[in-house]
Amino acid sequence: MAAQNPNGSLTTIIENKIATVEFGHPASNSFPRQLLDSLTSELNVLSANEDVSVIVLRSVGTGAFCAGASFDELLAVSNQEQGTIFFSGFANLINAMRSCSKIIVGRIHGKAVGGGVGIAAACDYAFATVDSSIKLSELAIGIGPFVIEPAVSRKIGKSAMSEMTLSAHEWKNTDWAHQKGLYAKVLQDQVELDIDLAHFTSKLASYNPEALIEMKKVMWEGTAHWDNLLLERAAITGKLVLADFCKNVLSQFKK
């Protein structure tokens, strides 16, 4: 199944009980709201597909894995309702990853910023390359990683999340992300990554699918309140993005 539109691309291939979902956008694989909604919908569909046991989540190209939210859409936000609606897209996506009945394996081939870090954190298992540095730059543009914080803190701990957030201009390298638990395995390049990823997911897909479903529930115990929490966080960000500080910084970034 494939969906193409001016706001990005989304393609899914199912083979041997493994669904490979690939998203893409010309602006460093960033997410406009339409692409967020498409990916969320696709994960919900795959969650109910009995022919799928494992989902591989990846992005196109050899550059960044994901640059987070679309700057163009952030700049276009003109009232709090629009801001809340936009950031609720990330809330819905993370909740879809959390509630999906299938194990989600992330293929993080390059840098991840902001919402991209949240997506990596919401994967149940993540492969990365040595080029997969991470940054939470939200404070630097006048907002904060409020929506993705629960997912990031769950993976790397509140202390490491706070360190990343407050050093908003600083990249954390792949070794740091690996040591903190964001990445389960780090490979030298994309060739090695794909070899290990294929072996791992093939093994995983051979396991009892009912056991995988039950294991997914155990792994995400205690997060049912995220349905409301992440939407509340989206409202906070939706308000902050309207401030002159944020608008000015976003304009400079775009230039």
Rank of each mutant, 00 (worst) to 15 (best):
G118I: 06
E22M: 06
R58T: 14
F87I: 01
S162L: 05
G114P: 04
K172M: 14
L187S: 10
T11K: 15
T11C: 11
T40F: 08
P209V: 02
S30A: 14
S70L: 00
L139E: 00
F245S: 06
P150A: 02
I213Q: 08
V77E: 00
T174K: 05
R107D: 15
V218T: 12
N16S: 03
T201H: 13
P150L: 04
R98D: 05
S167I: 07
D196A: 11
A151L: 14
P145C: 04
Q252N: 13
P6R: 12
I13E: 14
T62W: 14
T201E: 12
K155P: 01
T12G: 04
K172F: 15
A184T: 01
K158W: 05
K17S: 02
S153R: 12
W171G: 02
E138N: 07
G144M: 12
F65K: 06
G89L: 09
S133Y: 14
E214T: 08
L93F: 05
F86R: 14
K111L: 11
I104P: 01
S153I: 11
P145V: 06
E214G: 05
K254M: 05
I85D: 11
S99Y: 01
L193G: 13
H199Y: 02
A151M: 13
S28V: 09
L57C: 12
A243E: 03
R33N: 11
S153A: 15
A2F: 11
E50I: 06
G106M: 07
Q179H: 11
A160M: 09
G110Q: 09
R33S: 10
K185D: 11
A27V: 12
F87A: 07
T165F: 07
M161K: 00
I14L: 14
H225C: 06
L193T: 09
T12N: 05
C123M: 05
E170C: 05
F200E: 06
V21W: 13
E221W: 08
D244F: 08
G68P: 01
F23V: 07
N228H: 11
S133H: 11
S132Q: 00
S38R: 15
N29W: 06
L74Q: 09
L39G: 05
E15H: 15
R233C: 08
E42M: 08
F71T: 13
N49H: 06
T165N: 10
E42R: 06
